[in-house]
Every structure is written in structure tokens, then in C-alpha cells.
Amino acid sequence: MKFLVIDHVSHTYFTRQSAVTALEDVSLAIEEGEFVSFLGPSGCGKTTLLSIIAALIKPTEGTILLEGNKIDSMNPSVGYMLQQDYLFPWKTIEENIFLGLKIIGIDTNEAKQKALNLLSEIGLKGVEKHYPHQLSGGMRQRAALVRTLAVNPKILLLDEPFSALDYQTKLKLEELVWKTLKDYNKTALLVTHDIGEAIVMSDRIFLFDARPGRIVHTFIIPEELRSLSPFAARQHPRFSELFQSIWKELDQLEKNR
């Protein structure tokens, strides 16, 4: 049985002026522990698909199955990380990372301690009592990752979580997130428009085309890149090779439009 199954999902947004099909007949399956990326131009429905998996919106058609169970209500087994950290400015870092535990009602001392351990593991020891504005962008995004992981989700949805960071911070954070997710054997789904990021982070890349959003190509990342950490993978000769072929594919999509 596949871990996550997206089965013939379509979604249409209605406005007064028009009906826009954001996703058309998207089907895919993800194994447990796999890291996949959705890559594509803006408007290809990547974020819509994530929102559907997180049950934030209901698809017009199709179903999502997590471990064989239909997802149709918001569910703590799906963790969601946004483009920006959205740490609550009036809460301390500690209160922020306990947020999910509290909402679900599992804020036991043990769970809290786990979250604090994760915080120090991720290099944020000693900021528990700080407020978000006292932290840098990269630190805040790391705290947001801890907040998401604290409730121990089965699958992690990453919606361009590095796009608001400067390049250096972004590389460091890719490394950290990749390692953390591998250590905890988490299944993850990354939405990005950064080809390099998709290659170094994932096991598989789904290439999306826009209007309507649909999968046009699947790239399987070769084993030698998969085993490398993101930073090391960027140096590998196969990296630029793959980069070129994805680039060409994307370029072709744009020309055909």
C-alpha cells in the first residue's frame, strides 16, 4: 500500500468573472520516507494541491488517501510549513513551538520536552524565552519547522519554505531540513520553483505545467545524488546534467504556451 495517494484530483476556483481550473486530473503516489518536489511555474496549482492535501480546501473532484484513509478534515498527521515563518509575534519561541501541541490537546510535559530537544538539535538553544522579532529570518524559519514537527506529523508539506530567505541562509536551511527529515524518516512534499533546490532535496520531482495545472513529467533523482546532502549534491557532475534537462523541459513548456 502506498503511503500517500492523490487520486484524480481536480480543482476549479470560481469567481464572479470566471471559473479557473487550477488543477486537472492530478494523480500520484508517494512512498513512506520519500521526499518529493512539485516544480513548476507560478499558477500551476502547486500550492492548491498542498492545501488540498492539508484539507484546507476541498477538491472539486478526486480524493486523497493517507495510509489508505481518506483525508477530508484537517488532520494533525499532516504538517504544513508556509513560505514565511508566521510565528506569532506576541508569543515567545517556546509558546510558538508548543502551539500545535496545545491545539491538539497533547501538550504533555513529555511532548513539550521533545519539542525543546528538537529546538536545541536544530541549533536554537537558549532562545526559548525570546520573541520572534529578536531572531533572524533563518532562525525564525527553523523555529517554524520545530513548531510543525513538534506534533509529529506523518507527512510534511513544505510550501516554498526557503523562498523568503537570503541565498546563504537558504542553503544552510536546506541542509538542515534535509538532514532532520532524513533522521526522523519523515515523508515530505516540497513545493518550489527553484530547480536546484528540487534536485538536491528530493527523491522524485513532479514537473507541473500551468493553466490548467497538471503533471507533465516525473524526474527520478539518481541514487548517487539522493545519498548526498543538498550541499554536496550541488557539487556533483550529475547535478548540472539534471539541471539542464529540467531547464529545457520547463523552457519547452513556456514556448508551447
Partner: peptide, 8 residues
């Protein structure tokens, strides 16, 4: 949205 993803 953050709160809703935790099922709030």
C-alpha cells in the same frame, strides 16, 4: 492557516 493546519 497555521492554526488550521493543526486542526484548530
Amino acid at each position: 492557516k497555521v492554526l488550521k493546519t493543526f486542526g484548530a
